[in-house]
Amino acid sequence: MAANYNAEPILKVEHMSQHFKINSAFTVKAVDDVSFEIYPGETYGLVGESGSGKTTIGRGIIRLYDPTGGKITFKGADITGRLNRETSQLLRTKMQMIFQDPMASLNPRKKIGDIIGEGLDIHHMYRTKEERKEHIDGILKKVGLAVEHYDRYPYQFSGGQRQRVGIARALIMNPELIIADECISALDVSIQAQVVNLMKDIQEETGTAYLFIAHDLSMVKYISDRIGVLHLGKMLETGTTDEIFSRPLHPYTKSLLSAIPSPNPRVEKARTAVEYDYETSGIDYGKGSLTLVEGTHYVHGTAEEVRKWTSESAG
């Protein structure tokens, strides 16, 4: 099932900001005025280096943090502020998360089956023990694990296997949006591909949307329909994967693109990465704003900067 852009967005993030107060004089603006939308069945890739605020956005959306400002709408319901029972139920079932660290995201004292079944237990989604077991076994098979893994514990598994358990845990709730927070970055490249394939299969089958958070662009390009580039808490550039890759405008995006390694020794040996240093770049994120370039392609900068970048890329 492909992304449905005619439908209402399933998630709408408007002017979200998240400030952490360090002391009375100093506040860190981890996320500053970020807006984007995700449509049903779509994969939105959020890319940025460590400290860019990408993880904070993911956790703010699913309400592990309380965002300082902005409005987030999920399936038409406002999920900021105090949640009523209904909204909370909606948020805790239809939105799920896959975590970064396969070693830390599974409770070491719980059996795999009980980890996957936790959502069922919390929301009383089964009538009999047999029904629960059947449901969990089905999910285990779906993520490529064996039914006999049900009674095992997390430390008996490899990183890739654990990440599949994490996916199964999210999947069992039939979510319509899954936030994947750097869910492949701790894995070997060969296993990353396995997990990404699995996520794609699941999307095809269930039509769930993904917010795919990552720090490098190589897998993001492969899985995402649209991409947002984040740096120091600001959304610098967003657009379809094609728009970003064929015509990157912001210097930071360009440097990210140039950093993608290629498994082609002849090319890779000649490649040099483009450097980007905010302090010496002469760009002030405080001054510019997100400006439409064409189609759905936006870039963050002052009018002058945007003009310069677009003319550069056209020439």
Partner: peptide, 18 residues
């Protein structure tokens, strides 16, 4: 398993299992 920038296939060929 490593996508290059031109990879447009629907799936990556991967090594199954662990």
């Amino acid at each position: 398993a490593m996508p290059d920038l031109e990879t447009d296939d629907a799936r990556l060929y991967t090594i199954p299992g662990s």
